[in-house]
Nucleic acid binder design. Structure first.
Lengths: 334, 334
DNA sequence: ACCTTAAATGTAAGCGCTTTCATATGCAAT
DNA sequence: ATTGCATATGAAAGCGCTTACATTTAAGGT
């Protein structure tokens, strides 16, 4: 593989000049530039990015830590990040944290030891304090779908409360008034805020929040089926069910169908996230679109702007979810 | 950030010795080893992996090229590759080819210019010749789900014919004899081999392949719905439908349901791949499991063995798919 | 023609490691 | 003690670039 030295020799110039034509930031006369370019062409020269990194103290790589590679968000988020970064000639190093505190920390240390220019984290197990301390280090840290006040400039987050509001609001608009709610684990900020949105919509409609029609699930399918089972076993009266994510909505739909419900006429169901399979469910799931792909793109843009001095990028750190009306929810039949 | 030089100073030894205790391959006396380790500890020393790469001509990184990050296989494949490689201290650099020839080539060049120690490709647009030429270069090339005779030692592939056979066989076992088939684009080896398996199963059962009950789809949902529409419009008689992938099976299921079919009683449907949403469909989709996760792991192991001299790994280049019997196919009701 | 100044190019010192080769050390055998 | 040998350690070159600084070149003003 040709080196910069061979190029300089063939072109009859110094190493520095070759480096200059590669880095385009200092002026080189057109004549010598051409000589150098020709020599590169002739030798099939490709700069050694490792040597560049060492000399310039910039690896052109961004580390990404996600919970699970096969989780529903990861792929879309990654697609967003990768396309932005790749277009800028940067690359992405990926690792996983499996939602466990020590594995997340280990993954972060791994990325830092690889000398990533920045890291984008989608973590849940690690504490806010840890993140704050981490961000004092030399590697810039960005957070996806997690808001930490002290790090607010580095957070890309979703307005979960608005999402929760929209979900319940869509059901209210359909004339429902007896609405059950299956929440996610309340120590997770997302779950908490979605519930807040639900309560807000109810309050606005003059309906008081009924603790009996409230169940805390685990964000998995079983959480949804257990939740619905609970409401049914308690012989409660309700015509709609709002779930804090799509997995639980799917679990609830399965349970409902197995117990003779005709969806959506007997029960309207709404999810949250608009994961890939929402559109494959039967009936197709009405849900709140969580624009993770767009948020990934934005995280990448933020890195490009902050770390790689790509000045004129417009940054939006706060995303608004939208309603995806499909077939699992419908107007109340009196 | 501490350098090896500072460690050597604090420990009162030479650079070389510090390097030796890091690389564990040459003997260092226990006494000096301890001094060095203590010094590292005290300084919080982390080796600079970039400098290591430059000096050792080994980047400890493996490039991965996939068609789409949000495609159904990618996540599982990646999860397999990443977990294996990460455990060995290597990392993964990811990029996409979007199934377009020039983008795939560009992605490959990008990975090579990053000096990956090996690249794992999941490509479809690029030609066999290109791959053969590529593998003559200095970066070892591995192929996922693609078999090229000349590169057979570097291919991890699935027995698609067996899969096609199993799919149709399961339907035959249910007593069906009028079986429609929606194939994938026949220039794709996977699609071709799956069809071969289908024919083999028919032949074995003494049923002759009927070109009227055969349709070539596009591997997307629309291919499935169009295929089924075609069969119905032609007023053909069939009680089962085998599709060459799950997307088409899903499309066919939607079309069937919209046209009053009661699944699986009016029509048994089988897919192929067992993508993540197969289990979320209604009824849940009977399909052929494509063990992409395992194949990803194996690709990583192969790299570990070939490139990183990890001798005692057992390699299996050929994977066998298995039947996932679910609710979308059932015994024929006479 | 001569001096000044800006632009173009060259020189050489790193970046933080690995690794070859040379040297020092310790120990057993004489 | 002396030799020999294996083992432990050090010195220094080099991996392929970037970049501060020094030097050369060209152009403009008098």
């Amino acid at each position: 593989m040709a080196t910069i030295y061979q190029v300089s020799e063939l072109a009859g110039v110094s190493l520095a000049t070759v480096s200059r034509v590669m880095n385009k930031n200092t002026r080189v006369s057109d004549k010598t530039k051409k000589k150098v370019l020709d020599a590169m062409e002739q030798l099939g020269y490709k700069p050694n990015s490792i040597a560049q990194s060492l000399a310039s103290n910039c690896t052109n790589s961004v580390g990404i830590l996600v919970s699970e590679l096969h989780g529903p968000f990861f792929a879309q988020m990654m697609a967003g990040i990768e396309s932005e970064l790749r277009a800028a000639g940067k690359h992405v190093i990926i690792t996983t944290g499996h939602s466990e505190e020590d594995k997340e920390q280990e993954g972060i240390e791994f990325l830092i030891s690889r000398r990533c220019d920045a890291i984008i984290l989608h973590v849940e197990a690690v504490s806010d304090d840890y993140l704050i301390k981490l961000s004092k280090g030399s590697t810039p840290v960005y957070l996806m779908s997690r808001y930490v006040e002290q790090l607010k400039d580095n957070c890309i987050s979703l307005d979960n409360q608005l999402g929760g509001y929209l979900a319940t609001k869509s059901i209210l608009n359909h004339g429902h008034t007896q609405i059950a709610y299956i929440a996610g684990p309340q120590f997770k900020a997302d779950a908490f805020n979605r519930l807040e949105g639900h309560k807000q919509a109810l309050a606005e409609a003059g309906i008081k929040f009924d603790p009996a029609l409230f169940y805390i699930g685990d964000f998995n399918e079983t959480g949804g089926s257990k939740g619905l089972k609970h409401f049914i076993d308690e012989k409660l009266s309700f015509t709609a069910l709002v779930c804090a994510n799509d997995e639980m909505a799917s679990g609830a739909m399965k349970y409902a169908r197995e117990h003779g419900y005709n969806l959506p006429n007997d029960l309207s169901i709404v999810g949250f996230d608009n994961v890939i399979f929402a559109n494959y469910l039967y009936p197709t799931l009405t849900t709140i679109d969580n624009p993770v792909g767009k948020m990934g793109e934005m995280a990448a843009k933020l890195v490009l702007k902050d770390v790689y001095q790509n000045k004129n990028l417009v940054i939006n750190r706060f995303f608004e979810p939208t309603l995806m009306q499909r077939d699992s929810s419908a107007p109340l039949i009196k």
